[in-house]
Design a protein around this nucleic acid. Structure first.
Lengths: 338, 338
DNA sequence: CCCTCTTGTTGAATCGTTTCACGGGTGTGT
DNA sequence: ACACACCCGTGAAACGATTCAACAAGAGGG
């Protein structure tokens, strides 16, 4: 209860405050005997460092901010986990905020982070031209854009090549001998979705007799996928696809359910199915789901590393843009079909 | 770049630092004209408050800490969301930490929170007798235990009645006419699981010809549930249960898959299935899953409210223990069966 | 004209830590 | 004995905001 500061510790140990501080921060500068007395005083008084005072003195905090689009999305949770692990290794901690696609919340978190004097900000922006981005940059706060490819020379960025991922997914379906492919594409406004679609188109263009039908859905949820799957299963036999590429795993899981629940009696052949993201649940579905894996934790790690490089390099450091390649994970849904 | 403090603002506006501070914190004490000059100076210099300095002066921060067992578990994510929302309403923000069932990480976060001088801590402890708990309490830090029922007069707590939930689930199965019930019980060491099992026993005891078989599983995951479901389906007909109560929804989802994937040919009647938690995914399975819903966000909200009451009431405040009642959610898995 | 009240503003003290220039010892080499 | 380097430890000056006693300037009442 009685607020115990470094001053009380010094008094108790019979040394000056400077020495206590040294004992804590550079023990090698303090004689062994003194060190022990200080340690003991700390123990007996139950002293706890005051972080606010350290920060005030240091001018900067020991944390970084991270704003994601949606904490409920397992993709972002995993990226955050990677960032958290990498930060912990160098003694930083991560303040996690979620914008929920709301520019106001995005700004509110940026404000908070500025007031906390974070070392830097990891940021999955809603729009590239967020006004908050400019502001932070003018103030010289290091920034790394996450899952947001850009050529902007002002910011570093880390992202995964979604065009390549889309192409990879559809090429795999084509290699299974499939030719009539449907893509469940989600909302066209989302950048990631648009790029995956573009990749799918490229893959199909390389095979003369292949056809791609792009089917937008209102959202990227299990329920939408299920409705879409049921609708596909309900089609006349000659209109049915022989393969489906879903823009993310939630859609794919739903589609799998829709196809097998309502469609079985009318279907003549199994449909090859592949999703995107390789969330944990993908391997646990009734028919294990093929998917495109993104290096989620690595993304978070790398983002932190780039941020630290910027902190170290000062404002003169060049922006680095890191694009990772996704990876095909083949399970039964695309080979045996569903 | 040039660090701009309240001092520069004062200079630019031609007033004293005290006045700038007043303009920010108690605008009503400052003349309109002065206010405007200060505002303008702030704008033109791009001044941002330094939170560390405020905290140092105030002696406490504007945040609370929250340690959960596992951020990857949707249950805790939802509780955290509720806490975050409630905190935001009173201008607090939540520092979220995850112990991952590791006492060392738990302690590390408690240390961090202490150094940050948080207003209080929401805490889902691994053990009740965590040493960190004692320490915090001795220092007078307000604490609310979350999802951890206790009679301990030192701490407030919020929880959901797991005995009632278990009883509710099994009573529902009995009301469907089922009599040979299996409980997939997860690891017996987990308190929540033990209490749900206890509830199940009570429900069965009330019906003379009903039988309960408790089947522990090594963990509460989809994969374990699947294995268990497959094993059940493989049993000889006379040994098969006519209903299954899974200790959480992940187990239930797996069990559903195990039963329908491998068991169909040998089974003579559908099995009624019910889970626990009512995670988002429950309504989206092939056969929609009946479950026991916990008021997750409300739990988080209430925890924050109790914490604030403690902060306001000082150390003399009495500990309050809040136990919520769970709610039965009936879907097809328990009526039509799987 | 004096006194009191109100309204705005000031300047200094304070929070707890880190840092750094300085100094008293002790030992070493010459 | 002298110079030199080390090793430990000291004490005061920041860091940036808040708070509070004190005060200046009018306004109004008597």
């Amino acid at each position: 209860m009685p607020t115990v500061s470094i001053r009380e510790v010094a008094l108790q140990a019979g040394v000056s405050v400077g020495t206590v501080s040294n004992a804590l921060n550079s023990p090698e500068k303090v004689a062994e005997a003194t060190l022990q007395r200080v340690q003991q005083a700390i123990e007996s008084l139950g002293y706890v460092r005051n972080d606010a005072a350290r920060q005030l003195r240091a001018g900067t905090s020991r944390s970084i901010g991270f704003i994601v689009l949606d904490v409920a999305n397992p993709f972002f949770t995993d990226v955050a986990r990677g960032a958290q692990a990498a930060s912990a290794e160098v003694g930083l901690n991560v303040l996690l905020g979620t914008s929920d696609h709301d520019p106001a919340k995005e700004l509110a978190y940026l404000d908070l982070f500025e007031q906390q004097r974070v070392q830097g900000v990891l940021f999955t922006p809603i729009d590239t031209d967020a006004e908050g981005l400019d502001r932070l940059h003018r103030r010289g706060v290091p920034i790394v854009l996450v899952d947001h490819p850009t050529e902007d020379p002002r910011f570093c960025s880390v992202a995964v090549d979604d065009v390549a991922g889309g192409e990879m997914a559809v090429r795999h379906l084509l290699e299974q001998g499939r030719r009539r492919i449907v893509m469940l594409a989600g909302p066209p406004g989302i950048r990631q979705v648009a790029q995956r679609t573009e990749g799918a188109r490229r893959a199909v263009a390389a095979v003369p007799d292949a056809r791609l039908e792009v089917l937008p859905t209102p959202s990227l949820t299990v329920l939408e996928g299920r409705a879409a799957g049921a609708a596909l299963a309900d089609r006349a036999p000659q209109d049915q696809p022989d393969a489906v590429f879903a823009a993310n795993d939630l859609l794919a899981v739903g589609c799998l359910q829709g196809l097998s629940l309502m469609g079985r009696p009318r279907r003549r052949e199994p449909v090859a199915l592949i999703g995107y993201d390789d969330i944990d649940f993908a391997s646990a579905t009734v028919v294990p789901l093929s998917s495109i894996r993104q290096p989620k934790e690595l993304l978070g790690r790398t983002a932190v590393e780039l941020l630290l490089a910027q902190v170290a390099g000062g404002p003169g450091a060049r922006a680095v843009h890191h694009v990772f390649q996704p990876e095909l994970v083949v399970r039964e849904s695309s080979t045996r079909g569903v």
